[in-house]
Design a binder for these strands. Structure first.
Lengths: 302, 302
DNA sequence: GATTGTATATTGTTGCATAAAAGAACAATC
DNA sequence: GATTGTTCTTTTATGCAACAATATACAATC
């Protein structure tokens, strides 16, 4: 439906923060794409991938250079200086946006029911020391993720979804319905190149990268995998529904610990699923997916 | 999850417009609740039902009185003056919000692909003659409904969902998956009072009110029915997903003509479904729902 | 005891000026 | 021929003050 994960982060006062954020986006992209040290970072291509124009990309690249993650020469553009490992991406994001922290804090407070279900903007501004503009942006983002909504009068209301302790189980139950069903849809089809790309990534994760990934990255990768597959149904409602669930699951994910062994098994199942999908045995694939989603994975990723 | 249908409409310059809007909300509520001429309109109760405080309700009531739809006496509050029929609710809404019109226009333009997928706010302001604030509000609403999203840079992108000609069929396919599945969920249960309320409403519609309802109202009533039922699964993700689909289906609904006979049959199926649900034969109910959703209904309501 | 009337405090909106960010076009370079 | 460098235009954000709407508390009335 709509790529919602690249939710924008403006409202930066300190110019360099914005640049570092962009740098982070670029590194994350490079990582996902499996780029290595020495690969060229072509402005237009990055811009297209991130739905931006070259101007902001440029800022990001300069920030990367300043952080020693990229090297640039006049008229020859930039080149990755280091393999974009998890660790490498961090420094660029060292100036973790305050907004990002506040976001996490709010999420935590809601999960722990430290906030009332109904709350005014003014109250939120006071509690978290935000300006109106900052709060606005934050609320927009949260609303887009679906766990808050305006009341008709003053104030906002947090969704039950997230505050409920059973939310995690409910998300699972929901996915267990839509994901296999999507695969079983009449027109389901996954282009070969998508399968190849997905297999590559899962393979990379399986073969060691897992150890170097943060929980957030692992989770993101899992979401991407499942979203790509559900996309095969060609029905955006399935995709959109999954994205929403995932954006809420992400909130829990941060508080779960990493069970690397479970994850490894998990990724193996992903690979197995790809094999079945490749041969177009969709009924079987749907069943496999159903089983995959039933498996209780401690870390809450799938 | 979150009651999103009472999307607020502020930004009114002409004070009375806001009041008339509120009046409309009150009448619509009275209608849904099956109130009759002579029934009291208790401020606090209306306020609770509409998630507002008494102050705005009061404005609405006064507007209703001015429109001759309610009678008020000092210290005795207001009383419905007429049965809240579809026609009666109209005059109060005569000053149909310009925003509402623009909303409809945009929806139409997107459906007809008269707008590019990516577009800037400035462009939208020019095209539809809106102030930034007005547009902002509109975009927020549309974003909440899920058919537009910000790009990371400048501009917004319309969802594929809505512009696709198959969207209608896709929405149907999606519902055909989640609604029966929700009923089949382990913990599914529908409180008796909900069944009673739903039956009452459907009964009312079946016994003639149908003829006097607008397409919009018929559609709304159908959505509410299905949403109440899916709520029985106790899993907000199902409910939320259905709400989203419905908010998009509503866009199509306005352009479909009314097939009163088909609708009558349709409502009969609703009543039948309630009977089965009442006896807790959920497996059977799920099957019934699946069939119900397969039936090709011209008017695109369900 | 519930509901309405009224006054007051709080909350959110609008428009505007300034500043910052992003996009687009084209020349320069590899 | 693709990519980078540079410049210019357009678009959007931000903070602020005046204003409008909503919420709340309590008294008055039924």
């Amino acid at each position: 439906m709509i790529a919602s994960d690249s939710s924008r982060q403006r409202s930066i006062k300190n110019g360099s923060e914005r640049a570092e954020h962009l740098a982070g986006l670029i590194m994350a992209l490079a990582r996902r794409e499996g780029m290595r040290a020495g690969d060229r970072l072509i402005e237009q291509r990055l811009a297209d991938a991130l739905d931006l124009s070259r101007a902001p990309i440029r800022l990001g690249l300069k920030a990367l250079e300043a952080a020693g993650l990229a090297r640039g020469e006049p008229h020859r553009g930039f080149v990755l200086a280091k393999n974009p490992t998890s660790g490498a991406a961090q420094p660029a994001l060292a100036a973790v946006r305050r907004n990002e922290q506040v976001y996490a804090t709010i999420a935590g407070d809601v999960l722990a029911s430290r906030l009332p279900a109904d709350i005014t903007e003014a109250e939120l501004m006071r509690r978290y020391g935000l300006s109106r503009a900052e709060l606005q942006r934050l609320l927009d983002r949260i609303a887009a993720e679906g766990w808050i909504a305006r009341l008709p009068g003053y104030g906002w209301r947090f969704a039950e979804t997230i505050s409920s302790p059973e939310a995690q189980a409910q998300a699972k139950a929901f996915r267990a319905v839509i994901e296999p069903a999507a695969i079983a849809q009449p027109g389901f089809a996954l282009p070969q190149e998508v399968i190849v790309r997905l297999r590559e990534r899962q393979q990379r994760v399986f073969e060691g990268e897992l150890e170097r990934m943060t929980i957030g990255e692992i989770f993101h990768s899992g979401c991407e995998f499942h979203e790509e597959i559900i996309r095969g149904a060609g029905n955006p409602f399935f995709l959109e529904a999954l994205k929403r669930v995932n954006s809420i699951r992400r909130l829990f994910a941060y508080r779960s610990f990493a069970d690397r062994d479970g994850m490894r098994r998990h990724v193996r199942e992903h690979l197995r699923l790809l094999d079945v999908l490749e041969t177009r045995r969709y009924t079987e694939a749907a069943e496999l997916m159903a089983k995959h989603l039933q498996r209780p994975l401690v870390a809450g990723l799938s």
